[in-house]
C-alpha cells in the first residue's frame, strides 16, 4: 500500500501542471544555447578532413555509435539542417519535429569536437540542449492532459545532475583528499601555468598563497554542487542557488579558466510566468495614468 502511495506521489510530482510560458522559455533557451554553440564552431564538419593519420585513431565503434560514417559533403548538408532545425525550434515552428531533428543532429555532431580524444563531449555545451530538445519534442503533442510540465522538470533534473555528479565525481576519484588545501593550490597554480596565464599575476595564483582559503573554496564548492538538486523540490531555494550558480561559474572562469557554456540555461529555473505577470502589471500601471491624461487632453 505504501509503495503504491509513494508511486502515486512521485507521479504527481512529475506530472504536476506547469505554466506554458516556462516550457516555452526552456525551449527557447535550449535552442538558443545550441545555436550559439554551433555558430561558434562553424567548421565542425571539417573535422572529417583531418589527416588520415588522426582519423585512423578514432575507433570504428565510436564512429558507428554517433553515425560518423558519411562523407564530409553530406555532413555539411546535415550541419546546415541543424542550423535550420535549431532556428525553427527557437521560434516554435513545427516544434515537435524541429526539436526532434535538432536533438538528433546535436547527438550526431556533439562528439565531433572531442572525438580525437574522447567520445564523451560533456562540458562542451551540447549535452543538455540535445537531451532537453528531444524531451520537449516528445512532450509536444495535442491532448496532453498532464501538460508539458514533466518535460521541463526532466530537463531541469538533467541540469541539476551536472552539479551533483561534478561534486560526486570529486569524492569518487579523489576522496576526501580532494578537499585538501594542497590539492586546490596545485589546481590553481597548475591550470594557470598549463593554460598560459602565468606570465602576469592572476586571481588564482594570488589565492593559492592562502591554504585556508583554498580549503574553504573546495568545501564550499563541493557542498554547493551536492546540494544543487534541492532546487528541484524547494522552489524558494532557487532564489539562493541560481544567483550562487552564476557567481560559481564566473568565479570558475576567472580563477580556473573553465568556461561553462550552459550557464544561461540556469534561466530554465526562473518562473517566467511570474516575471511576465509583473512586466504586464508594471506596463499596465505605467500606461494607465498616461491614457487618462491623453483622454483628459483630447476632451479638454
Amino acid at each position: 500500500m505504501r509503495l503504491l502511495e509513494l508511486r502515486e506521489r512521485v507521479a504527481t510530482f512529475w506530472l504536476a501542471p506547469e505554466h506554458a510560458s516556462n516550457v516555452i522559455a526552456a525551449r527557447i533557451l535550449l535552442a538558443a544555447s545550441g545555436l550559439w554553440l554551433i555558430l561558434s564552431r562553424h567548421d565542425l564538419p571539417g573535422v572529417l578532413s583531418l589527416p588520415k593519420a588522426i582519423l585512423a585513431t578514432i575507433p570504428m565503434q565510436q564512429r558507428v555509435r554517433f553515425l560518423i560514417l558519411m562523407p564530409v559533403g553530406i555532413e555539411r548538408v546535415l550541419w546546415v539542417a541543424l542550423h535550420i532545425a535549431l532556428l525553427a525550434a527557437l521560434f516554435g515552428i513545427w516544434s515537435r519535429w524541429s526539436c526532434l531533428a535538432a536533438g538528433l543532429l546535436l547527438y550526431h555532431f556533439g562528439p565531433f569536437e572531442t572525438i580525437i580524444w574522447t567520445p564523451n563531449p560533456y562540458l562542451r555545451g551540447v549535452t543538455i540542449p540535445c537531451l532537453g530538445l528531444l524531451i520537449i519534442s516528445f512532450a509536444t503533442s495535442s491532448g496532453d492532459s498532464a501538460g508539458p510540465g514533466w518535460a521541463l522538470r526532466l530537463t531541469q533534473l538533467l541540469f541539476a545532475e551536472i552539479y551533483f555528479f561534478a561534486g560526486y565525481s570529486k569524492l569518487f576519484a579523489g576522496g576526501l583528499a580532494w578537499l585538501g588545501a594542497n590539492n586546490m593550490q596545485h589546481y590553481l597554480t597548475g591550470l594557470d601555468q598549463f593554460l598560459g596565464f602565468s606570465a602576469a599575476p592572476t586571481v588564482g595564483h594570488w589565492l593559492a598563497q592562502f591554504p585556508l582559503v583554498c580549503s574553504t573554496i573546495a568545501v564550499i564548492g563541493l557542498v554547493f554542487e551536492l546540494a544543487f538538486p534541492l532546487v528541484l523540490f524547494f522552489r524558494r531555494l532557487r532564489w539562493i542557488f541560481i544567483p550562487m550558480a552564476f557567481f560559481f561559474h564566473v568565479a570558475n572562469w576567472l580563477v580556473f579558466h573553465i568556461f561553462f557554456q550552459n550557464a544561461f540555461l540556469l534561466l530554465m529555473f526562473v518562473n517566467w510566468e511570474w516575471v511576465l505577470a509583473r512586466v504586464v502589471y508594471a506596463r499596465y500601471h505605467r500606461r494607465g495614468p498616461k491614457k487618462e491624461i491623453e483622454w483628459v487632453n483630447s476632451s479638454g
Binding site: 560533456y122 561534478a166 569518487f172 580532494w178
Partner: peptide, 30 residues
C-alpha cells in the same frame, strides 16, 4: 532517464549524452 543518468553518474562510466559530469575531480599533480 532517471535510472540511466543515476547509473552513469554513480558508476562514472559515460554513455553520452548520458554522462558522468566529472570536472577537475582527480587529485592534482605537482
Amino acid at each position: 532517464v532517471v535510472a540511466i543518468t543515476v547509473l552513469v553518474g554513480f558508476t562514472q562510466i559515460e554513455s553520452w549524452p548520458f554522462t558522468n559530469w566529472a570536472l577537475v575531480h582527480t587529485i592534482s599533480r605537482a
